[in-house]
Design a protein around this nucleic acid. Structure first.
Length: 350
RNA sequence: AGGGGUGUCGCCAAGCGGUAAGGCAACGGAUUUUGAUUCCGUCAUCCGUAGGUUCAAAUCCUGCCACCCCUG
């Protein structure tokens, strides 16, 4: 065994991205082991994840660790998820999972078991800045960029992490998998919430937390009654589908008031918001800004970064004023702040 | 009771003699490592009902039914 060889634990979900990440690290000469996390009892994560990951690990000839984080995942990610929906907000479980589970528990586990780094199949780039000594999180140059989901990581997490496929186009990743004879080469991309198999998140919350949703009123911006809603947890700001219809124009959710159990609806023009407040900010550099500055802000993972001015209120909180109003800004989602390609950090939209 | 009005898909609504627009909803699919958004596709053999006129009616005529308004 080469004592100077650096050891990397790769988080292996059983998908193409993490599998190819492991493959590339092996080719670069790292000592590689895989880690598959058990996160829930019944999700499809576990159904195919463990077996697919095992098949890939065997094919690559690496050891696979199985980490049972079900209790912690439930206590952090799922509980937060339910709590948000029940209070009329829209949670973003991936953003919670990354710093706490993948780059939290899994990183700890890896370091405790002799790893120097962990790696994941995210499309993003980590750079080490020689002059400042800081680790920079940057956008992936490819369209799959997932830096948004990583905007709550910190220096110590980034310093121990690698994204081997961060700059590769998806097609190339699949090709690499295929050429290496990996069975998951053509496995479809994961989407939707990993712990809810049928995408019925409201039903999931209702069942898991033994709550029944209280019906309430749809109202317009003047407070006039428009109809009945089936419980605030079913809605998210900007939502169009599932409102029951019968309106003269397309209606969208403008806001959700948990206290009154009302959902306010608006027409298509009412969806734009000129500014927002983000709390619980994570600044990747570890230093929060003192003065206001120009930047770009992503209000959701699939949004184009929008030009805005950032006004720090305190180290945990900023006001973001957009150059042009943004559509469907939803409380509970993350606002990720970018300066060029660099992710400065992210906070939770209020 | 008398006078007026209206009845077209779950909702809104065009059509005014030539063989059922459109919008909303719903459903299906694409996109998306969150929720949404967006995109594409499907969606009334039939126009309150029963007759009549016509080569041809949702569209004209008649009866009936329902709802709305006004007057007493």
């Amino acid at each position: 065994m080469n004592k100077g060889m650096e050891k990397v634990f790769v988080g292996m979900s059983g998908g193409v991205d993490s599998s190819v990440s492991a493959l590339l690290l092996l080719r670069k000469g790292y000592e590689v082991e895989g880690v598959t996390m058990l996160l829930t009892d019944e999700s499809r994560e576990n159904n195919s994840a463990a077996t697919d990951a095992k098949a890939v690990a065997d094919k690559l000839g690496i050891r696979l660790h199985i980490c049972d984080f079900r209790r912690e995942f439930y206590e952090t990610v799922i509980t937060d998820f339910a709590k948000n929906y029940l209070s009329g907000r829209t949670p973003n479980p991936c953003i919670v999972c990354n710093p706490n589970i993948k780059f939290g528990l899994m990183l700890d586990y890896a370091l405790e078991n002799g790893a120097d780094y962990i790696a994941t199949g995210h499309y993003a780039v980590i750079e080490h800045s020689c002059d400042s000594g800081a680790y920079l999180l940057k956008k992936s140059p490819v369209s799959k960029d997932q830096s948004y989901f990583l905007s709550r990581l910190n220096q110590s997490q980034l310093s121990k992490s690698m994204f081997p496929i961060g700059c590769l186009p998806k097609e190339e990743v699949r090709l690499l998998a295929q050429n290496a004879g990996l069975s998951v080469a053509k496995k479809s991309d994961s989407q939707e919430i990993c712990f809810i198999s049928d995408n019925d998140y409201a039903g999931y919350i209702s069942e898991k937390f033994h709550v029944s949703f209280e019906k309430g009123n749809f109202i317009d911006e003047n407070g006039a009654l428009l109809g009945e809603h089936s419980g605030i947890a079913h809605y998210t700001v900007g939502q169009r589908k599932g409102l029951g219809g019968g309106f003269r124009e397309t209606m969208y959710v403008k806001s959700i008031n948990a206290k009154n159990n009302t959902v306010t609806l608006c027409g298509s023009q009412g969806r734009y918001t000129g500014e927002l407040t983000a709390e619980n900010m994570n600044w990747i550099s570890g230093n929060s800004p003192e003065e206001d500055f120009e930047a770009e802000v992503k209000v959701r993972s699939t949004a184009k970064p929008a030009r805005a001015r950032i006004y720090p209120i305190d180290s945990q909180c900023v006001r973001v004023v957009f150059d042009t109003p943004q559509i469907c800004v939803s409380p509970g989602q993350t606002a990720a702040i970018y300066l060029g390609d660099t992710v400065l950090g992210g906070g939770i939209i209020q």
